[in-house]
Design a protein around this nucleic acid. Structure first.
Lengths: 211, 211
DNA sequence: GGAAGAATGTGACAAAAGTCATAGACCAGG
DNA sequence: CCTGGTCTATGACTTTTGTCACATTCTTCC
């Protein structure tokens, strides 16, 4: 991990912090599809995303998984931070969508740097704020919106994050992530296709225009 | 606000921090029913609950409100912290259920103390962690559970928090907070009464036994 | 006590979402 | 090129939830 690479994705970090990160953290790589963390796992470190793309899910006791948000380079998992500090287990699951590289920072430094580097302190708080807000938006959608709206929002978010109008995903996967059923998603997608909003292919959805 | 009173509700705080709080913060009182914060409001301070009880809601653009969690003495509003630091507005609403007293800490100190007092730093992180977890539980319920389970959970939480088996609330209010409709809540409650789980009175529900 | 207003009960119906069954389309490996 | 597996399409049906209409009961206040 080069200094330039860290600086590129975390531009607010001060020089000394970047040096510290370079000296004391460890790089970990995950291939697409691999899990970064599992439900019930203990954290001994916090992870900053440098390369790739990570999907974060909430899992319930029956094994249902529910998509919460993406993590991109320059971001960090709030839960890994908070659980790390408190030495508690998580109830979330994170999965690499693309091949992913993370900076793994041991708990001890994460703590120490909070007092030492203002930029680190602000980064951590901003991470909480951003994830917190994302959870609130998620709650808005499942509490206040019907499935058709939620589906559109889901597609919009994916287009935005993937940077491509074509989302490579099956109806079943969407149904799982929205905690619905495949038939419902298929029907809604078909309706959207008739309205010219999407074009459906096998294992992928091309988004034409969303409201 | 006396030193003893602060220490009682925030036992982890070190002596110097309590002195600092006493010297630099301000006490604010709210009567039952009053709003502590509104959607769109800017924060210039963060609030620690000393006395009373506060309900925190999420509001959407159409004015629907959705109950998220309670705040009790010894707790703080994570959003007020995070928004305070970033000088952003909130999308949440907080309402005093009982007459409530809060310690209002100006933004500047909140920041300064993070580096200065380990106990403050841990308190802030723990606040985030706790609220974050509560949001996750909330998401679990609206994503994975049907209305009957959600209603039971809602009642259970209220009994727990109020410390009383009798919840003084109307069916309409519950419906609003769960984003449902009165008839649905009435029907489910009636069913629960037939099962001997609750006893219904006008404007109050006595919880007998929940699974 | 009577009237107005709030809270609750209830039946009928509509809409949304989930389930079931079945069939066709597409793809990869032999 | 055929075969088994995955993905998608679709109609029929059930369940859950939301909506509407209206009745009833309780409370407060004059």
């Amino acid at each position: 991990m080069s200094v330039t690479e860290i600086r590129e994705h975390f531009p607010t970090f001060e020089k000394e912090l970047i040096d510290d990160i370079e000296a004391k953290s460890e790089i970990r790589s995950f291939t697409a599809g691999e899990q970064l963390m599992r439900t019930g796992q203990y954290f001994k470190s916090t992870m900053l995303i440098v390369e790739g793309l990570v999907k974060v899910y909430r899992e319930d006791d029956q094994g249902n998984e529910f998509f919460m948000y993406y993590l991109q380079p320059g971001q960090a998992c709030a839960l890994s931070m908070v659980c790390a500090v408190k030495q508690e287990t998580s109830q979330i699951m994170a999965k690499a969508v693309k091949d992913t590289e993370v900076i793994s920072i041991p708990l001890a430094y994460m703590d120490e740097w909070m007092g030492k580097y203002k930029s680190w302190y602000h980064f951590v708080l901003e991470t909480y704020r951003a994830r917190f807000e994302e959870l609130l938006v998620t709650i808005d959608h499942i509490a206040f919106r019907a499935m058709d709206e939620r589906l559109e929002f889901y597609l919009k978010k994916h287009v935005q994050t993937l940077g491509s109008k074509i989302i490579p995903i099956s109806h079943q996967e969407i149904a799982d992530e929205l905690n619905s059923s495949r038939e419902v998603i298929s029907r809604l997608l078909k309706k959207m296709e008739q309205l010219g909003k999407v074009k459906l292919q096998r294992n992928s959805i091309e988004v034409i225009h969303l409201s």
